[in-house]
Design a protein around this nucleic acid. Sequence first.
DNA 1: TCGATAATGCACTAACTGGTTACTTTTCTG
DNA 2: CAGAAAAGTAACCAGTTAGTGCATTATCGA
Lengths: 222, 222
Amino acid sequence: MDQATDAPTEPAGARAKPRVRDAEATKARILDAAKREFAKNGLGGARVDVIAEKARANKRMIYHYFGSKEGLFQTILENAYVDIRTAEQKLNLDHLAPREALERLVRFTWDYYLKNPEFITLVNSENLHRARHLKKSEVIKIVSRKLVSMVGSILERGVASGDFRAGIDPVQLNITIAAIGYYYLTNRFTGSIVFERDLMAKPALEERLRFNIDTILRLVAA
Amino acid sequence: MDQATDAPTEPAGARAKPRVRDAEATKARILDAAKREFAKNGLGGARVDVIAEKARANKRMIYHYFGSKEGLFQTILENAYVDIRTAEQKLNLDHLAPREALERLVRFTWDYYLKNPEFITLVNSENLHRARHLKKSEVIKIVSRKLVSMVGSILERGVASGDFRAGIDPVQLNITIAAIGYYYLTNRFTGSIVFERDLMAKPALEERLRFNIDTILRLVAA
DNA sequence: TCGATAATGCACTAACTGGTTACTTTTCTG
DNA sequence: CAGAAAAGTAACCAGTTAGTGCATTATCGA
């Protein structure tokens, strides 16, 4: 998706000819534009014409490559999940002390949501549609299992080292780690009104991250 | 909204004449139908014609009473917030021991989300629209302050009694209590796929509530 | 009982929406 | 270099959408 495809109008360094037509680049531009549009307006609110325009592509191309608006959404959603799960795996937490590993995971989850706000909105949109698209995906389950087992092994190591208490369900912990960051950020607009403070101000964000790390460490502490 | 208005075609007990025309009842039916539709499909996805039909009212009535689709949404959103905040105030937690009071609040929040799933979806929809409608509301701030001060006083009492540690921000605690329930329920569809278990099965719900109470009590414990 | 007012219904529209048909242009292969 | 295949375009379509103009009907106070 973010491969180094040349802009279609300028010549590449290696290739002599400028590719005026570049299927991969067009596809990538469509996916990028669509991710933004779906994130901004949801599946129902996003407009195919707008996506085509922002992708500097013809609407027909969207139907050529992705079949339908929903097909496009499904691709983007699947990519979004694979992206975050891949990034998590790269954290390499196995060689860290259990408490340190858990803190890193909480911090990563928070930072990822902050830097990729479209992930949250896409997931929200998918849940509004009762996970209709995700149901069809097989790759989701595979990458998700890795996350659960990752948290599971941190918990195990923590129990063995005496840092964590026993009997904690990795899935519940996983959900909680996601929840305390996700909720804060997805509801940042209503939250800022309800609590009468700018939840997205830098000090507020830093305070929340500290609070979240604290919450999780207290939750697992022996 | 849920006042005992007579169905427009049947005679009331006290009133002799059947009110063929009943502005309040029509309004109430529109609000009820709209709440369901907006919750099911979001602001963008909801259809005014469908709302009118389900409310057994003419579409013209919606524009007569609420001005626009967005005006209708705003009314429903405001009502939704007032409803939950009112229910919270009725909990009367002041005379309970701090730990007991906090557990009750976590339990109430969870139960409320479970019984009123449309609240979550309405809030999600409003955040997709950057709280455009909530911004215009004044009553929201008033009812929200009561919630924050309620949690604040539980915390104070807990610190005084030696049950809770000092220095916890009531707003952060509030957000966390909401988050651990809200996230689980709003993402129940994708969550059930990602974690390969039915998150809405009765034992799963009970387990989650127990886990959430535990999370909050450990978070505040001295 | 009458007339003002509020409630209601029908038919309409202008703009939009996802999706398609028919066509042109570029690229690649033998 | 021919011509097939792939990439790309513009105009269009049928169905939908929020919103309205206007006539009608019920209610209620005087």
